[in-house]
Nucleic acid binder design. Structure first.
Lengths: 287, 287
DNA sequence: TTGCTCCTCACGTCACGTGAGGTGGC
DNA sequence: TTGCTCCTCACGTCACGTGAGGTGGC
């Protein structure tokens, strides 16, 4: 197929097609006379490219989607990034509204500092932990990232966080990766919200949480003790995640820096620790 | 003030400052040695520019805000545009979600057609009718702009709509303009929603609407008949808007084309007309 | 003279649009 | 030969970043 026919078929300009070819999204053969010859697979690619471009993905992102082993998963990864961007834009819009109402540029500027700091961290989180796990981490940490940096110590903690996130190599064995995606794949926002609420309740008042959820916790504890668990995908995933946390500095760099950067996160961690002690007293096998 | 001091004071790079000077957002004097001399007013401008850029406004938009007679109003205008963009992006994100779930590129492509058509019309609506009136019109018409174009007739109607919106000169006398902004300035989304709901109820079942709102309608009708109304800003505004509608083709071009483009809008207009007849029977002075 | 600041080009980015100038195919 | 299609530059967009190369001020 020559370029004109192709352009008619996918409703694109020659220049756009040439651009995608140059960037390696499609692969026409070149004939002896210099003419390009496009195949059916190029047409199919272009149809997808057009939809994805109209949905706002960059050409580079589209290339990654098209060449990904699992197209769906790649799409979800970019979906997560776009979702984050949209949320940030929503907050920016609120600030613009405030500005239009009160004209206080300085107050808005301070809030923008906090917002941009949050954005950089969450963006790198998504980058470091692609897929649904990153999304979960974003939703978890977002609430503790509203305060702008106030002093040098926080600034340094912020830099350590970025350094950590740029360096992490989050890799699971392929089978566990698939299992992990399956489990976290249907995490939507409201579900994570309810998880967090649940966790909050447990942390706030661990004793009564233990009481009211005794049965389910007993069952879970029993399962975790069992050999079945150790050999199950869940058990192996748990072990690998713990290992990653220890080896890559999640526990030794990221969390301590977060506690310095965000006072509210420090409070949360302290409560968590207290709750954890009470919890371990009852279920020592969780340690 | 020389450029280095200025950059330190507003935390920008030299290049950014030079760019804004080139685009005419700030106005340094040039000394004999070729050095630029910046004043306090340039610093103030740059602080605003920085906040507005971080909030996502283009340099051109910022220039318009800074040179506008009424800064707040200019800000609100751009706020409306950004709100529209965000809503569209939200819908695009839903489509991306659908794509990630079902991978049906063709279905998504069709829905994108409808979405993009809606976007072009609403964008030009905001352009043609800046400020809160445009926002109201957007919220009003958005619901009737979901269906993609199916035939040549609709395509032509679509083009007539764009032609109309690009050509309208929406101008009120300055005092009425101010009055209009005051009245519509606090139109937020939920308020317009309730207006639309109210209107829908009236159109759906005009008789019982007339019954249950008799008192308020009587008072309103009485006021509209009075000389007070003719001379009030409200009365003069009403007259000017009607004149604009007649003279600029709102009634003769835009509305008829909308009825062709959107079947749901045609149905709405038909219901409206029926309701209007019943209404006029009771209150002939409204004609 | 040295080190610092200032200036004006000029090129790169991203995803193409819009020609210009030249060639192949029928 | 004519009209159509194809090709490859090259420049423009937007909001700057990143030098390069040259000059002013102290």
């Amino acid at each position: 197929m020559q370029i004109k026919n192709l352009c008619d078929a996918c409703k694109m300009t020659k220049k756009a097609v040439e651009y995608y070819a140059e960037k390696g999204l499609i692969h026409p053969r070149t004939l002896e006379n210099g003419y390009r010859n496009f195949g059916e697979e190029d047409l199919e690619s272009l149809k997808k490219i057009k939809v994805l471009r109209r949905l706002g993905l960059s050409v580079q992102s589209i290339k990654e989607v098209l060449t990904a082993a699992d197209e769906q998963r790649a799409l979800r990864t970019f979906l997560n990034i776009e979702e984050l961007e949209r949320k940030i834009e929503g907050e920016k819009q609120e600030l613009l509204q405030e500005l239009a109402a009160k004209k206080d540029y300085e107050a808005v500027s301070l809030r923008l500092d906090g917002l941009e700091q949050k954005e950089t961290i969450l963006r790198r989180l998504l980058n470091a932990f692609p897929g649904s796990y990153g999304k979960y981490l974003c939703l978890h940490f977002a609430r503790y990232l509203k305060e702008p940096i106030q002093n040098r110590e926080q600034e340094e903690a912020f830099q350590r966080i970025l350094g950590f996130l740029d360096a992490v190599q989050f890799s699971l064995s392929p089978d566990l990766q698939e299992y992990f995606e399956m489990v976290t794949g249907n995490f939507d926002e409201s579900f994570v919200e309810s998880l967090e609420k649940n966790m909050e309740a447990a942390v706030d008042d661990p004793k009564s949480y233990l009481e009211s959820n005794r049965e389910i916790l007993e069952t879970y504890a029993q399962w975790k003790r069992s050999e079945d668990f150790q050999n199950s995908p869940a058990g192996r995933l748990y072990a690998q995640l713990e290992k990653l946390n220890r080896e890559q500095g999640y526990d030794t760099v990221f969390i301590p820096a977060m506690k310095i950067l965000s006072p509210s996160y420090r409070r949360y961690q302290e409560e968590l620790k207290k709750a954890d002690c009470i919890f371990r007293e009852r279920y020592p096998e969780f340690s």
